[in-house]
C-alpha cells in the first residue's frame, strides 16, 4: 500500500533510471546514429566529439551505436533468461510446495544441488554441452536461474496452501491445478515481482560476464560484456571504449535493483 507518510525514493529513482535506460534501448532497436558494425578506418580511436558522442573503437566503429545495440542484446538475453527461470520455477515450486511429500523431497534436493553451483559456473557447463551463441546463453542461464525462483514460489505455496480460502475452494469442487494456478499463484505475485527484478540484475551481470569471457554473444554482434572484453586491451589508449559500456551496465543494474528494493518495501 502506498502511504503518504514517506516517499519511496527508491521507487522514484529506480523507476527513472530504468525508464531512461528502456527508452535508450528501444531507440537503439530502431535507430542508431551509425551502423553499429560499419568500420571507418579514418575514425580509429576517435575521441569524444560531436560527430561521435562516445568516440570510436579500434575498428573505427561508433561506440554510442554499439552501446545502444549492445544494451538491447544484453536486455533481451536477460529477459529470456528470467522468463525461462520464472516459468519453470513457478511450475516446479508450485508442484513441490502444493503437494509436498516424497516428490517435494526429491525435487528440492536436486534443486539444492543445482543451487550450490554459482550460476555462471553452471551456465559454463551447459555452454560446453550446447556450444556458444546467443540462444545457448539464454537457455544455459535460464536453467541456472530456475532453482532460486522455484524456492521462492515453493515457500509461498507452503504458506498459502493451508489457508481457509484454499480449503473453501476445495469444498466448492476446485481441482488441484485450478487451486494452484488460479487461487494461490496470484498471491505470490508481489514476492515474485521483486524476485524477478533481482533475477534480472543477476541475469544482466551474468550475460555481461559470459560475453566478457567470450562464450556468450558472438562477434560482430554487439553486447556490453563483449565490448568490455575488447576494450580492456586499449584501456589506456581509449578509456572511453570501456567506460561507456560499463556505465550502461551499472545504470541498468542500479535501476532494477532500486526498483526491486522499492517493491519489496511496498509489500
Amino acid at each position: 500500500m502506498k502511504s503518504g507518510k514517506k516517499k519511496n525514493y527508491n521507487f522514484i529513482v529506480g523507476g527513472t533510471i530504468t525508464g531512461l535506460m528502456l527508452i535508450f534501448i528501444i531507440i537503439g532497436f530502431f535507430y542508431t546514429p551509425y551502423d553499429p558494425n560499419a568500420m571507418d578506418p579514418s575514425a580509429k580511436f576517435a575521441g569524444i566529439s560531436l560527430k561521435h558522442l562516445m568516440g570510436c573503437d579500434n575498428f573505427g566503429r561508433d561506440i554510442l551505436s554499439r552501446v545502444m545495440k549492445g544494451a538491447g542484446t544484453t536486455l533481451s538475453v536477460a529477459a529470456g533468461t528470467v522468463f525461462i527461470g520464472t516459468f519453470f520455477g513457478i511450475i516446479l515450486g508450485a508442484v513441490t510446495g502444493y503437494f509436498g511429500g516424497i516428490l517435494d523431497e526429491i525435487l528440492m534436493r536436486v534443486n539444492d544441488a543445482i543451487f550450490a553451483f554459482p550460476s555462471i559456473l553452471l551456465a559454463l557447463v551447459f555452454i560446453s554441452l550446447l556450444g556458444s551463441g546467443t540462444y545457448q546463453v539464454v537457455i544455459a542461464l535460464g536453467i541456472a536461474f530456475i532453482p532460486s525462483f522455484a524456492r521462492i514460489v515453493r515457500s509461498e505455496f507452503i504458506k498459502c496452501k493451508n489457508m481457509d480460502y484454499v480449503k473453501n475452494a476445495r469444498l466448492q469442487g476446485a481441482g488441484h491445478l485450478r487451486i494452484m494456478f488460479v487461487h494461490i499463484l496470484p498471491n505470490t505475485f508481489t514476492v515474485l515481482l521483486s524476485a524477478i527484478m533481482i533475477g534480472f540484475n543477476n541475469a544482466v551481470l551474468a550475460e555481461a560476464g559470459m560475453s566478457f569471457l567470450g562464450i556468450g554473444v558472438q562477434p560482430p554482434q554487439a553486447s556490453l560484456g563483449r565490448m568490455l572484453s575488447e576494450a580492456q586491451t586499449y584501456l589506456f589508449r581509449a578509456p572511453n571504449y570501456a567506460i561507456f559500456p560499463g556505465l550502461v551496465i551499472i545504470l541498468m543494474v542500479l535501476g532494477f535493483s532500486l526498483l526491486g528494493d522499492a517493491l519489496k518495501r511496498e509489500e
Binding site: M163, D164, Y165, K167, N168, A169, H183, P186, N187
Partner: peptide
Amino acid sequence: QMIFQDPYGSLNPAK
C-alpha cells in the same frame, strides 16, 4: 459448505 472461524483467512486476498 463451510463457514470458517477466521474471516480474514477464508477470502482469497488476491481476488
